[in-house]
Each structure stands twice: as C-alpha cells, then as structure tokens.
Design a binder for these strands. Structure first.
Lengths: 194, 194, 194, 194
DNA sequence: AATGAATGAGGATTCATTCAT
DNA sequence: GATGAATGAATCCTCATTCAT
C-alpha cells in the first residue's frame, strides 16, 4: 500500500481552492492568501508547493481541462454511432460539472490569461484541438469533406454559448444551451445530406 | 463657431489610450499612469476627468459599443432584403475595426468586468439584446417561428468565433470568421425552408 | 462714499466658509476646494486672495478672536462694578456666538495649529493674555494679591469647560457652562474675603 | 517559560513610536512610514499588525489612558483620607509622565480625533467619567450635595490647565499646574464648609 | 512540513498650488 | 478679477514573495 504523501493532497486542495476563489471573485483578482486560507493553509505553504501564483493558476486550468477531458471520454463510452457520439460531446460540454458557476468563471478568466501567459495559451490550444478532433472524427463519416467546416463551426458555437451563459449571472440553463448546439448540429447534418 | 472645450478632447484621448493599453497588456492590469502617459497627460488629470479607474474602463467599453452600433447601422443602409441585411450584420461583427487587436482584447476583458461590475454587465446586455433584435428582425420573414432560435444560435456563434479569433494571437482571419458564420446562416435558412 | 472693492467681500466669504467647513468636518482636514466651493468661488481664487491654505486658516482664527474680543468689550459696557464685569466676561466666553458648533470646532483645531504654526501660537497667546488682563483688572479690587492666581485659575477653567463642551457632540449647554465658572468665581471671592 | 510572541513587542513599539511621532510633529499629520521607521520596521508591517492608521492612533490613545489610569490607582494606594486622595488625583494628572511633551501633544490631538472618530470619543468619555467618579467619591464625604458640582468644576479645571500647558511650548510647569488646581480645591472645600 | 514575520514594490487617489487665458 | 486646466508630490494600503525557525 503506497504511502500517500501529503504533497498531492495539499496541491489538490490548493487547486480546488483556487477555482473556488476565482468563482467567488468573478475575476483573477484573487490573492494567494485568500486561496491558501480557503485551502486551510498558510500562503507561504502555497508558494512552497507551487513556486508562484501563476503556476497555481495554471495548475487550476490544467485540472479543469483534465476533468473535462475525462468526462468527454466517459460520455463517449456509451454512445453508439457518430451522431450519438457527437451529441455526447455536446452534452458533456454543458455538463453540470462544467456549468458550476466557479468553473464557468474560471474558464472566462483563463481566456484572459491566455492573452498574456504562453502556457495558458498552449493549454487552451490543446483543449481546442482536442475538441476539434473529437468532433471531426464523428463528423467525417456523416459529412465527408464538409466535416472540417462543421467542426470549426460547432466548436466555436459551443464556446459562444458557454460564454453567454457565463455572462448571465443566475443559474445557467444547461438544457437550453445544449439544445441550441444540438439543433445547429442537425442543421449541419441535414444540409450535408442535401 | 463653437469653442470646443478641452474636456471632451481629453476624455476622448483617455478613452482611446485606455483601449490601446488594454490591447497592449492583453488584460485589465493596466495602471492609470500608463493610460494617462499614453494620452499625454498626468495620472491626476485622468482622475480629474473620470473620477476613478473603473469609470474610465466603462467609458472605453461604451465607446467600443457605440462605434460597433454605428458600424452596424451603417452596414444596414446599403443592404437590400433580409438575407443581405443578415450578411451585413455578420460582416460588421468581424469588421476590420472590430478586429483590431486592441479592440478584441478590450472585448475579452470587458467580459471579465461584466462578472463583477454591474454597469459593465448592463452594457454587455444592451449589446446582446441589440444584436439579437437585429438578427430577429430579418430572420423572422425568412424563418417565421424558427427565427428566435436561429437568432440565439447566430448570436452565440458570432461571439464564439470572435472569442476564438481573440485567442489566436497573430492576425485574425476576418474572411474565415465571417465565412463560418455566413455558412451557418445558410444552413439555418436551408433547414427553415425544408 | 468709498467704493467698496470686491476683495474684502471675497475674503470675508472665504473666512466664513473656512470656519463653516472646519465645523462640518470637525477637523482641519478640509480642502481648499471645499472651502472655495462653499464661498462660491474657485479654489484658484482662494489662493489668489490668501496665498496659501495656512494663511486662510490664520485669517479665520483672527476673525474668531476679533469677534470674541468685540463681544467682550460690548458686554463690559453695561456692567457696573468689578463683580458684574467679571460675570460679563464669563458669560461672553460662553455666548451663543462662541458656542456655535462650528466656532467650537474651529477653536479646538486652532489649539492644534498652535503647536505647529508660530503665528497661530502668537494669536492664541494674545487671546490668553487679553483674557487674563481683563480678569485681573476686576479681580484686583476684590482679591488684591490673590488676584493673579484667581485669574489664572478662572482662565484655565473657562478653557477647560469650553473644551469639554466642544467634545460633547450635541447641543452644548451654555447655562451649565457659565454657571460652573460663575460659581467657581464665587468660591474664589468668598475665599478671598475670608 | 512562556515564549513571548513577537507580536505584542511589535505592537508596543508601534504604539510608542506613534506617540513619539505625534509629539514630534505636534499634530496628527504623521505618516505611517514615519511611525514605522521610528519603530524600526516597515510600513507594511505596521499595517499588518494594526490594519489601518486609525486603529494605530486609537491603540496609542488607549495606551495613554491605560497608563494614566494605572498611575492614578497607584497614587491612591498611599493616600489616606479624602483630601489626600483628591490631592493625589490632581497630582497624578500633572505627573511627569503625563507632562512629557509627546504625551501632552498626543492628548491634544486625541481631542481632535474625538470629534470625528466615534471610538476616540468613546475612549475620551471613559476617561472623563472615570476622573469624575474618582473625584466624586472623595468629594462626597467632604461636600455632600455640593460634590457633583465641585467634581465637574475640578475635572474641567484639570483639563483646562493641562490644555494651557500643552500650548505653552517649552517645559511645562508641573508644580504651578497642580498648585493651581489644588488651591481651587481648597476654595471649594472652604466654601463647602461655610 | 509548515508558518509567522517581514518587506519592497507598486498603484489608486487626493490635493495644494501654479498658470495661461 | 476669475477660472479651468494641469501636475508633482505625497500617502495609505495591498500583496506576492522570501526567510528563519
């Protein structure tokens, strides 16, 4: 039985606290002290584990992307056929997890970070390419050459709908959000066949 | 010959400097001193005219929305028929003006501000409603009851595409951006007729 | 008929505004702009007339002392005999004019100024010596050699009572204040005779 | 052996430095930096311990009142009989400690603070009530019903004499000050018996 | 591993004062 | 005489980060 070090536990606590605090503040204007306090430790310890604030933010971003990726993979396991798989991808993008206020808020702020911090931009790029390739894989059998454009469109649409929900304070409407994208998907498929 | 007061000139200079600096920094982490210096005056004068930093940011946001609104109205003048008008709206959203790096950057950061500052949220709401009603007016004759959903979709798509371009450092591709949305528009129209 | 320049009018307005603002703020933390605005002019004009802020404060102090001096002289006109004159002096110190909240407040703050600004200390010295000599003149016939000490005591008592009223926000009680000092005066006189 | 935390030491150093600086400046126009430097630490640390400047001033005020209270209690221990106790109270009010230039200066400025800061007014109120009740307790056996008025008078006189000394730059004369009040006390007692 | 102590750097904001008109 | 324009200097306060223990 491997002795679990305290380090990963502390780090995880800090990452979660970071996301929570960003959600609470609605911006990246969050102090290390606030984060550390929420994680139940001193600010000095947070620095001990992450070196600096930016690294902590990046770790939080990585965490969100990791969870999102896992969820997508999980959703695809059960889906049969390209259409079902596409729907699963869309639904996962607006899953309860991803629509938690704090996650939405974190996403928005990662967008901002990506303008300044190269590593943040790289991570966001990974997310976008992964989404694109996921969509593409299942659009190809249905749309052939039209698939790349449809993938680009659906990817952008997902982000746009997500963005709008992020801006609407109050409970976001998951059903409406995924419904909108799913119907756009149908339009594309219908058009592809015509 | 009306004597042009110096106040509006100074204010305009500050608003422009604000947008420029936000663009340069890629974030709202811009000091009043930096803005004032770029506008060719002291930080104290900036405070004299705008009271505080937030008001300056909001003025910049208002300015961008105003220009955007004017551009949309301008584009609609020449367009004949609903389809042409819809295309004009889309094209304007990705106009050269709106795709200036600094404007893109400002938009992104206003999204963040909207999570915290009520007035910013209000302004963003105005933009969204205006875009929606513009789209709706011309979609209605073409799609009837299907118009609201299509408007929601196109609005979100515009924002999503804009967002993606904003994140792609380097020259954004205006043609690709509007092409993507215009094709989605065609899909909707085609589907509507079917 | 002498043509009254506008200068004395402006100066008087500024002096009054200064006293009012000090009273309102309860401290010397009053800006020239606030004073000027209350006096109905620009801050620049206030500087034009007084040179700097300190001079304005000193002018206000002088004004208060002048008015107080005039009131004392006025009160003495009617009083007959040393005892009546002493009572008049005491009563004037707690006159309605001197107990206006703003005047009380100004006094307190002049005490502070006197610690730093030589001219303020000089003015305060003048007030104290004048009060002392007034008291002394009428105490001498009644107490002989005991007069100086009694004068010192009564002077300090007047200041002390005044100070306490100044600290009691809410309407100061003029009757109680002068009553206290008048009784102390009686004690002194009684003791002097014994 | 209790490990003495550094916090109380730092706080005490800051309180002392505050009193010293106020004394040196003769006003509350003292910067946190000046205070911190005199206390041998950074301004940031001062804020760390006291939160803001006002709290630091209030702590200084509390300290002075505490020391004064202790001194009074100490002086009363040895005094036998009401008259001796009253004399002890008066003497303590003009003790060497209370007449250190910086303490005098601090008092004066606390009077000003009391006009604006509720907590300062509260503290000053406590001092006044304590002084009054101390005087009253020993005046009652000597003067009966005349005690309250005498207490009010002596309290005000102490403050007035103290104030006058505060305004006289140069070494204050403790003997003269307490002599004046003690003689007033005798007048009152003499009058009470008559 | 963990933290309180400590600070340098920085930033918004205020204000007395000057000056051109 | 009068003022809006303009600014330099100052101050409070915050915070990421370091370090000794």
């Amino acid at each position: 039985m491997p002795k679990v070090g305290v380090e990963p536990i502390r780090k995880a606590a800090l990452v979660n606290a970071t996301i929570s605090e960003i959600g609470r503040a609605g911006s990246l204007d969050v102090t290390v002290s606030q984060i550390a306090k929420r994680a139940g430790m001193s600010a000095a310890l947070a620095h001990h584990y992450f070196g600096d604030k930016e690294s902590l933010f990046l770790a939080a971003m990585r965490h969100i992307l990791t969870v999102y990726g896992a969820e997508v993979r999980g959703g695809l396991v059960m889906a049969e056929g390209p259409r079902a798989r596409l729907q699963a991808i869309v639904r996962t993008s607006f899953s309860a997890m991803n629509f938690r206020g704090e996650v939405v808020s974190a996403w928005l702020n990662f967008y901002v970070m990506a303008q300044t911090v190269p590593e943040a931009q790289r991570l966001l790029g990974i997310y976008q390419r992964r989404l694109r390739s996921n969509l593409l894989a299942d659009l190809r059998p249905l749309l052939g050459d039209g698939a790349p454009r449809a993938a680009a469109m659906l990817g952008a649409l997902i982000d746009g709908v997500y963005l709008r929900e992020a801006l609407t304070r109050g409970q976001p409407d998951r059903e409406a959000a995924s419904g909108l994208v799913l119907l756009a998907l149908e339009s594309e498929l219908a058009r592809g066949k015509a």
